[in-house]
Simulated scan of single mutants.
Amino acid sequence: MKQLFNTQFASTSHVWLLILRVSAASFMLTHGYPKLMTLIEGGEIAFYDFLGLGMTASLALAVLAEFVCSILLILGLGTRLAALPLIITMLVAAFAVHADDPFGKKEFALLYLLIFATILVFGAGKYSVDRFLEKK
Score class of each variant (00 low, 15 high):
F9H: 13
S13P: 00
S13C: 07
H14A: 14
V15E: 09
V15L: 15
V15R: 12
L17E: 03
L17T: 03
R21L: 04
S23K: 08
S26T: 15
Y33D: 00
Y33H: 13
K35Q: 07
M37N: 09
T38F: 10
T38E: 15
L39S: 06
I40R: 14
G43T: 11
E44T: 15
I45A: 10
A46R: 12
A46M: 06
F47S: 08
Y48P: 01
D49Q: 10
L51Q: 10
G52T: 10
G52Y: 09
G54I: 06
A57C: 12
S58H: 04
S58Q: 02
L59T: 04
A60I: 05
L61H: 08
L61D: 06
V63I: 09
L64H: 07
L64P: 05
L64V: 13
A65Q: 10
A65K: 06
A65L: 03
E66L: 02
E66F: 05
F67E: 01
F67A: 03
C69W: 02
S70A: 14
I71V: 13
I71L: 09
L72M: 14
L75V: 10
L75D: 05
G76M: 04
L77V: 11
A83R: 01
A83T: 06
A83Y: 03
P85C: 01
I88M: 13
T89K: 07
T89L: 02
A93Y: 03
A94V: 05
A96E: 13
V97A: 05
D100C: 00
D100L: 00
P102V: 08
G104S: 13
K106H: 04
A109M: 01
L110R: 02
L111S: 10
L114D: 00
F116A: 08
A117R: 00
I119K: 00
